[in-house]
């Protein structure tokens, strides 16, 4: 539940009178929103809401989590309080059990082991639970997505290179004048490269901001159309990922501006000043 939980759960285990609600559970209580601390009645038993999950895109959005003891207790309260529906769960009876597989074990191996060693159970793995068709589609699309991304990267390198070639050409006179004033070739080279770094860094930051905004706006659409939950990664991952993208953007700028910068540094001052007039 960790990634989906809103806020912090109280310390320790869930108590018998506490419930963690799915994101849509409030609808069943006729409310527009549920809040931590709300009191809700299930099958005649009152629970305190101690946690609310974010949207997961699967069935648990419509339900809640309580202790097993509370479930058995509810079977009694549902009879004694004459609720609309009886909760018919016999002691020792469970409908589903979620197994958290440690990273070092293969999910399929654990599923196979359970199916062979425990009779009368059906095992579904998390990929199937989420949406196997989506996972398969994404897997199939991956090579094409990589190719499209690579294509865009090559185009951007060429475009930035062409842009800086134009900038150098446009500023020939200025670059010639700088050399006449005493600028070395290395200075001219650094000047062009620094501008490339500045430009691509700003471009990278703007691109990331626009990308994040688009994903934020389309989050709901992604969940509905793909039938899977959309989760924001943790702050640490976002920071490292953003930094990596920024480094990639700057590296692209450096690579693209390399040739124009070399050309600029090799301009003869006299020719640069005269042809730039």
């Amino acid at each position: 539940m960790g990634p989906w939980i809103k806020g912090n759960l109280p310390e320790g285990r869930l108590k018998d009178n506490e419930v963690i609600l799915g994101s849509n559970a409030h609808i069943f209580f006729g409310k527009s929103e549920s809040y931590i601390g709300d009191k809700e009645v299930f099958y005649g038993k009152e629970f305190t809401v101690v946690g609310i999950l974010d949207s997961t895109g699967i069935g648990i959005d419509d339900g809640g989590f309580v202790t097993l003891a509370s479930v058995y207790n509810m079977t009694k309260t549902s009879e004694s309080n004459e609720t609309k529906r009886l909760l018919d769960v016999k002691p020792g009876e469970i409908s589903a059990l979620m197994v958290n597989v440690k990273p070092e074990y293969a999910r399929v191996d654990v599923a196979t082991a359970i199916e062979t060693q425990v009779s009368g159970v059906a095992v579904v793995t998390s990929k199937e639970l989420m949406s196997s068709s989506v996972a398969r589609q994404l897997e199939g699309l991956r090579p094409y997505l990589v190719m499209i991304g690579g294509g865009f990267w090559v185009i951007s390198v060429l475009m930035i290179g062409a842009l800086f070639s134009m900038v150098v050409n446009e500023r020939r006179r200025e670059l010639g004048l700088l050399q006449a004033m005493g600028a070395t070739r290395a200075y001219i080279f650094r000047l062009v490269m620094l501008e490339a770094v500045q430009l691509t860094a700003i471009g990278g930051i703007c691109g990331m901001a626009v990308g994040a905004a688009v994903i934020f706006v389309l989050k709901g659409t992604i969940e509905v159309s793909l039938g899977i939950a959309y989760l924001w990664p943790g702050a640490g991952f976002i920071a490292v990922f953003s930094l990596s993208l920024l480094v990639m953007a700057i590296s692209t700028g450096i690579l693209a501006a390399l040739y124009p910068a070399i050309v600029a540094s090799r301009l003869e001052p006299y020719q640069a000043i005269r042809t730039g007039e």
Binding site: L177, L178, A180, M181, A183, T184, I273
Partner: peptide, 23 residues
């Protein structure tokens, strides 16, 4: 070399060009 020539241009010679040459 290029560095020495650049230094000579900056220290020993001042240039005034035709038209505006200011950055």
């Amino acid at each position: 070399d290029n560095k020495q020539l650049a230094l000579l241009r900056s220290e020993k010679i001042g240039f005034c060009f035709q038209f505006s040459s200011l950055i």
